[in-house]
């Protein structure tokens, strides 16, 4: 059950629930005293037991602490790298925020490189800060992305791909082996065995933006047929 809300609309269901228990307000909702008001136009979602959020179409990324994003290194400035993540300001990335990096042993990162990093500082008054290690100092899945191809898309598509029940990646896997990094800032990095396959993969992903879950297998199949015929 989804409902369209506009900025300024009061979310009475959330207010009702808040009288008896805790309510989690996700993106697109804000609280004015005891009123819950939508601040973005979009579809109101509710997840049991107590979460409400608004899913809206958006291209501009607003950094959020803890999210994984794809950035392009634009400059090396002393101890930090400047990374463009498509937000209001360039993110900074310390050269020590890589696995096994020390003052003497600098990571090999150059302007123009593509990075998959996690935001640890995201405030509207400060510049965002990225890291390429997890809390235990291991790189995990973060780090420089070699080769491949980056495309920009809406934030919605990035989230769509990452939903647990989305069949897109599962269906694409049947067609070809590939590697993907989805940044929540609306950037998708893909890499397949050949250029042809990479382009086909990119097209399939972009075509899936407005497709329903039922249509996705068909899109993937079509791409596969074109590729290997």
């Amino acid at each position: 059950m989804t409902e369209i809300v506009l900025p300024g609309d009061r979310i009475c269901a959330a207010e009702e629930l808040a009288r008896s228990k805790k309510v989690i307000l996700g993106p697109g909702l804000r609280r004015e005293n005891e009123q819950v008001i939508a601040c973005k136009p979009g579809r109101l979602h509710h997840k049991e037991p107590n979460t409400y959020w608004v899913d809206n179409h958006q291209q501009r990324y607003v950094p959020v602490k803890g999210e994984a994003v794809i950035g392009v290194v634009t400059a090396k400035a002393g101890d930090i790298y400047r990374v463009d993540i498509g937000a209001h300001d360039q993110a900074s990335l310390s050269y020590l925020a890589f696995e096994s990096a020390t003052k003497k042993n600098r990571p090999d990162v150059n302007p123009g490189d593509i990075l998959y990093g996690r935001l640890i500082v995201a405030s509207r008054d400060l510049e965002p800060e990225l890291v390429c290690v997890n809390s235990s100092g291991k790189k995990g899945k973060l780090g420089v992305l070699m080769d491949g191809f980056v495309m920009n898309c809406s934030l919605n598509l990035a989230r769509l791909i990452l939903r647990e029940n989305c069949p897109l990646l599962r269906e694409l896997t049947k067609e070809m082996p590939f590697e993907i990094a989805v940044g929540l800032n609306g950037r998708i990095w893909i890499k397949a065995k050949s250029q042809r396959e990479t382009i086909a993969l990119g097209n399939a992903i972009l075509a899936a933006e407005n497709a329903s879950y039922e249509e996705m297998p068909k899109i993937c199949e079509n791409i596969g047929n074109i590729l290997f015929s």
Partner: peptide, 17 residues
């Protein structure tokens, strides 16, 4: 009310890599 600025927890998104 608890504010949650990220979609990741709302929509149960998986890791993107």
């Amino acid at each position: 009310y608890i504010m949650e600025p990220s979609f990741v927890h709302c929509e149960n998104l998986i890791e993107g890599r």
